[in-house]
Design a binder for these strands. Structure first.
Lengths: 244, 244
DNA sequence: CGGGGTCGTTGTTGTAAATCAATGTCGCCA
DNA sequence: TGGCGACATTGATTTACAACAACGACCCCG
């Protein structure tokens, strides 16, 4: 059972934020990256860093969300539930990703931690006011939103018009690219912190189809399956399948 | 064959824009709705109104897009093509809708006119500069982008986790709501200017499945099929299916 | 008014993936 | 160390939808 509850990492007030942000690995990738020193300091004051243990809930579909988040460490899954329990994962948030863009309307979704997660949390209202006063940051948010939108459209193609193998190939290569952007270097080993069921619910498949397809790809020497990940053996063929 | 080519509606320079905008039915729904008089006048100066005949191309996946658009009249379909010809329609743009949010990156898509279409066209660069100088408008653009994102996520659920009947029920009710917003009144008759193939490519189905499912819904007295549309007979049951 | 083109419907068959059902593997804790 | 529980794999069967095929309705234009 997924349980709620976050651990506050602040030990003695706001000065920790400065320390946290100074060494922040996610900063260049996140909203903060757009800000000059003085504007950045202002934003820091609003920041509430938090840790979430694996499987804990950041927010859910039902309750209105009063915060926005930037992921610093770990992986968060974002999903929607249908009344009968069917689940569609709409995205995995990795370090640097911003949570809260699509929460505006009545279209809620759930977010929970796949791994232990560290986030910067901001009050939605304060953050909004701050953005309105800093067009530079609003611009960055807008760019992030349009980028997300472009990705969402890619995902529609994937969900609507691709078969299981194409879905998996795209998923793996997409994740590889995202990890590369975060770490600064491309690795043939792709870390998969999420389980098979999560992958299935992201790709619009069942867990069995994901398992079978991955193992077939391994049999075909496209990949090797390793604990918590896969290793790409034939990048060219994989890419051919992904963009077929 | 879809052919390219738009008809320029300007007859003698910029003053026509004023006339067009004054009576514009889409204004309240579009970007322009966010602007004060003086800012609005400035934007008008950048506007190039255009007509596109049905089936003509506004822009396509390959060529970089140098413009953004607001739809004034008619319906535009937005889609992505896979190399082998499979097509996924990512949205239908109705009056008031803005085209160009998700065009930023290398993730292009195509847009062509389903019906005769009137748009306001802006140079991407000029429009961008204008937005940067008018935070109010940037804010509106951002709100539109996040709204689009929320819709895109809904569409992911639909494509990934719903069966044919649920897809069609959602599609019909979604369109009904959008037409209602545009016309200011809800009608039980839902106009479907797009063909069955377009609906199929939007919902991740085949044309045969769309046809069969719609006709089954008609047999079950949920709807009646009329020329270029459907009439909702049992809204309650339809909504139950749509949100099942 | 007639014929061709586009679009939609309907019937039949095929198949990818879902579903149902064991079984296997690993890690954790008693 | 042994057993429980979560997760993954594998196999057998079913099924929703795709694919193929043929036909029908409508429209436009000659």
């Amino acid at each position: 059972m997924v349980h709620l509850g976050a651990i506050d990492t602040r030990t003695h007030g706001a000065c920790d934020c400065g320390d946290l942000c100074r060494g922040c690995e996610a900063r260049a990738l996140s909203v903060c990256g757009s800000l000059e020193d003085e504007a950045f300091t202002g934003l820091q004051k609003l920041n509430h860093p938090l840790n979430f243990p694996a499987r804990s809930v950041l927010f859910n579909q039902e309750t209105p969300v009063r915060h926005v988040f930037t992921v610093v460490h770990g992986v968060v899954r974002l999903y929607k539930l249908l009344p009968d329990g069917r689940r569609q994962i709409v995205g995995f948030a990795l370090p640097g990703d911003f949570l809260g863009l699509a929460l505006a309307d009545g279209y809620g979704f759930c977010a929970d931690a796949v791994t232990p997660v560290t986030v910067c949390r901001f009050s939605r209202d304060h953050f909004g006011d701050y953005a309105d006063d800093h067009p530079q940051m609003l611009r960055r948010l807008h760019d992030m939103a349009t980028h997300e939108l472009a990705l969402a459209q890619q995902q529609m193609v994937l969900l609507g018009r691709r078969d299981a193998e194409e879905k998996l190939a795209s998923f793996l290569l997409g994740l590889q690219k995202r990890w590369a952007r975060i770490s600064g270097r491309t690795s043939v080993t792709i870390d998969l912190p999420m389980g098979r069921q999560d992958i299935a619910d992201f790709l619009g498949l069942t867990i069995e189809t994901v398992s079978r397809t991955l193992n077939r790809m391994a049999r075909d020497k496209l990949i090797v399956i390793v604990p918590d990940g896969v290793r790409v053996m034939d990048a060219a063929r994989l890419e051919a399948i992904a963009s077929a």
